[in-house]
Amino acid sequence: MPHRYFTAEVGNGRAALNGTDAHHLADVMRAKIGENVILCDAHAVEYVGTITSIQPGRVEFTVTEGYPSAAEPSVEVTLFAGYPKLGKLEDTIRHSVELGVTNVVPFFSRYCVAAPKKEEAKNERYCRVAVEAAKQCGRGILPTVELPLPDFNAVCDRFKDYDLVLFFYECGGVSLREVFNKEPGNRAKRIAVVTGSEGGFAAEEAAHAAECGAVTVGLGPRILRCETAPLAVLSAVMTLTGNLE
């Protein structure tokens, strides 16, 4: 499979990579003139690029006409993830990107065990993890990882931006299949998924989520770990929307 790179410098039949990506392709992968790679413009459009020039810090290509990325799901899903402890967020980001998430938004809530610490520096690392996962799994966009929201009220303030908000509560709720078998679930294109940290959610947080328009959803009789729940949820959402076929 050809290597995959993202670039904003593409158009009029030509493209280029600069900086670290150019170094990786030319010096690490030892690419040669005439070889092909897949280039993505980060807007779900892909191109086959043929290398025409290799210079220090820059690789140039001719490209085919752009075509839609087959890897992008038909729904745009944002994961709001309760901030976990012990570095678990990195794996959640990596696997969520593989499953098709568009945006990851960590947040702190009442029962979070973790506390904010050097979040700007951590976010740089988290964004790199998302980019590498997107390249590895063949995504056509670069999913984003936001700085964590300070509390659950800030999470609920974002609900108005989505067609459907799914709040996964350890105390139960409607089934996910039921949500997608009727409107507005079966028509939703922008979906928010909300999962908790190790401590779960306070009862008043669950009530506030419902007041702000979220659908409270259960995940069966077992309590899932905070690093398991997002992956189970995203797999189910992608399956029920036809994006794992």
Rank of each mutant, 00 (worst) to 15 (best):
E46K: 01
E46D: 11
C112M: 05
P56E: 11
Y162H: 06
L79K: 07
P116Q: 09
N103A: 04
V165G: 08
V101R: 00
F168L: 15
A71K: 03
V165A: 12
F61S: 04
I54T: 07
A114K: 07
R58N: 10
V48A: 05
F108S: 06
D91K: 10
A81F: 00
G185W: 05
I93C: 03
T92Y: 00
I93H: 04
K117I: 11
G172C: 12
V131R: 15
V45E: 06
A70Q: 11
E178W: 13
K160H: 11
C137H: 04
G57E: 09
E183M: 13
I51V: 14
A81N: 07
L79T: 06
A134F: 08
T78M: 01
S53K: 14
N153T: 12
R128K: 15
K160F: 09
R158W: 06
S175I: 06
K85D: 05
Y67T: 11
D163Q: 10
E146F: 02
A81L: 10
S53L: 12
V48K: 02
P148S: 04
Y111K: 13
L86T: 13
S109K: 09
T92H: 00
K122H: 13
V77K: 01
G140M: 05
R94I: 00
F108V: 10
V145A: 04
E46C: 01
C127Y: 12
E76M: 10
S96R: 08
R58C: 14
A115L: 14
K135M: 12
